[in-house]
Nucleic acid binder design. Structure first.
Lengths: 252, 252
DNA sequence: CGTAGCCTTGAGATGCATCAAGCATTGTGG
DNA sequence: CCACAATGCTTGATGCATCTCAAGGCTACG
C-alpha cells in the first residue's frame, strides 16, 4: 500500500544529458514508441517523463495487489510474472513479461493494482507516471492511439489465454506456451528455437491451469518424441512444426 | 469483412431534437458517461457522435471476426455474447454483455475485430465511431480517463476469468457465474435473486470451460441442496450466502 | 559441501467428459 | 390453435485426463 517510487533506493533520476536519448532511443520501449513511428521531438517529451528507472531484484516485487496505482512500467531488462490472488488464497499467474512490454494496466480501473508483479530475474524498468502519460497523449495523437492499441492488445492476449484454459488439453497448452515464448524471444532478436526458461514448472503450471507434474510429464513426452530437448530450464525446440500441429489438431 | 454500418437498414440517425438528450441522458451508457460525472456541455458533444443506433435481432451478429474495426458499441437494450474462435475451430465465449456495457475493444489493437459479437435477444446498441471518440477524448480529459478506465476494467475482468478457468472446480465456476449475473442485474436495477438466463447451458459451459451436462448437473445439485431454484432458464437464488461460500471454500 | 528448492516418475484416486436415452420447451406451419 | 419438429435440458453409465500423493534424484546457491 506504500508509495515505493518515493522510497526505493534503486529508483534513480537520469542525468539530463542522458535522458534525451536514453529512455526511448536506447530503451527497448517497443510497445509504446516503435510501432507508432513516433518522431524525435515527441520522443523528447516522452523521455522527459520516462526519466526514472527502477531496479528490481529477482524474487522482489515491482508492485503488489492493493498498492496505489501511479505508473505504468516498461520492462527494460529482465523478466517478470504477474499474479492474481482470490479471497480464499487461490492464485494464478496471468502473464509473463519480457523486455519491451508494459506492466500495470490493471491498476487504471480502480487506481489500485489488482495483481502482483514479481521479477523472475534481476530486472530494470522504466517508470511511466500515468497522469503525465495521459497528459501528453492528449497533445499527441499517435501516442494516444498507441496507448490504446497496447491496452487492446492486452485484452486480446487475455482472450486467447481464456481460449487456451477453456478448451485445450494439457499437452496442447504446454506446446502453445513453448511456441509463444519462442515467438517473443525471436521478436527480441534472440534464438527462437533455444532458450532458457526463467520460471519454474510450477509457475508454468499456474499460468496454464495445470499442476507442475503435468507440465513436467508433457515436457518428458515431447522429449521422448524428439520434438524438444528439455534439460532443466534449458529448452531446445527441435521440431517447431510438430509443436504447431499439436495445438491445431482439428477438433471437430 | 463488410462495412455494416453503411448498409444496415436498422441503423438510423436520430432526429436532432432528440439527440440532445437521447444518447447519454436516456441511454444506459453507464460505463462511459455516468461514473465520470460528465457535465452537460460535454454530453452534447458525445451525443453528437453517438447519434447512430443499430438494432440487432436475436441470433444475429453485431460484428464478426475479421471485420474492419470502426466503432465501439454500447448496449442500450438486450443481451450479447462475444466469442473467440481458434484456427482449428475450437471456440469459447469470452463474455456476456448487458445494457450499459461496451463492446469491441478487441478491435483497437489490429483494426479488425478478434471476436464475434452475437445478440442473445433482440437488442439495440449505440454506435461510437472510434476515431471521433479518440478525438473528443483528446479535448476532454475526464472522457479520456473514463475510456482508459473502461478498458482497464475489461483487462481486470478477463484476469478474473483466467483465475476461474485455471483454479476453480465445476461447481465453483457455476456458483461464481450465477453470482456475477446477479450482481450485474442488481446494478441495472433488477432483482438480484431472481432472473431469466438469456443463454443456453451450452453457452454457459463454453464461457466457464465446461460441458453443458456439467453445468446442468451443477444446477441440479444446487437445487437439491435448496441453494437455487432452476426451472429451465428461470433462476432463483435462494441462498446467496451458500453460493458465496462455495466459491471461497478456503483452499490451502 | 551441504541443504533447500526444483524436477521427474510412478501408482492410485477422482472429477469431468463422453456417450446415450428420454423428457421438456419453443417455435412453426397446417 | 394444435401438432410436430427442432432445440434445449436432465440424468445415468462409463472412460479417461489430470490431480494427488509419494519417493528419489538433480541443481544451484550459500
Amino acid at each position: 500500500m506504500e508509495d515505493r517510487e518515493a522510497a526505493s533506493v534503486s529508483t534513480q533520476k537520469l542525468h539530463s544529458m542522458d535522458s534525451l536519448k536514453a529512455a526511448c532511443a536506447n530503451c527497448n520501449l517497443r510497445e509504446l514508441c516503435v510501432p507508432g513511428g513516433i518522431p524525435i521531438e515527441e520522443l523528447v517529451k516522452l523521455d522527459a517523463i520516462v526519466a526514472m528507472r527502477r531496479r528490481v531484484k529477482r524474487g522482489e516485487s515491482l508492485f503488489n495487489v492493493g498498492e496505489k496505482f501511479r505508473s505504468l512500467y516498461a520492462v527494460r531488462t529482465g523478466f517478470f510474472k504477474t499474479r492474481i490472488t482470490s479471497n480464499d488464497g487461490r492464485d494464478q499467474i496471468t502473464g509473463f513479461q519480457v523486455p519491451g512490454e508494459l506492466l500495470g494496466f490493471d491498476g487504471v480501473a480502480t487506481e489500485h493494482h489488482g495483481v502482483d508483479a514479481i521479477a523472475l530475474e534481476d530486472s530494470e524498468v522504466c517508470i511511466l507516471p500515468y497522469n503525465e502519460l495521459e497528459r501528453i497523449a492528449r497533445d499527441f495523437q499517435p501516442l494516444q492511439h498507441q496507448l490504446h492499441r497496447v491496452m487492446s492488445r492486452e485484452i486480446v492476449r487475455e482472450q486467447n489465454v481464456m481460449l487456451l484454459l477453456g478448451t485445450m488439453k494439457a499437452e496442447e497448452r504446454v506446446a502453445a506456451f513453448l511456441l509463444n515464448l519462442s515467438e517473443r524471444y525471436r521478436h527480441l532478436g534472440y534464438a527462437a528455437n533455444e532458450y532458457v526458461l526463467r520460471m519454474t514448472r510450477q509457475e508454468i503450471g499456474s499460468y496454464l491451469g495445470l499442476k507442475l507434474e503435468t507440465v513436467s510429464r508433457s515436457f518428458s513426452k515431447f522429449q521422448e518424441q524428439g520434438i524438444i530437448e528439455a534439460r532443466g530450464k534449458n529448452i531446445k525446440l527441435l521440431k517447431m512444426e510438430a509443436l504447431r500441429k499439436l495445438i491445431s489438431a482439428t477438433k471437430s
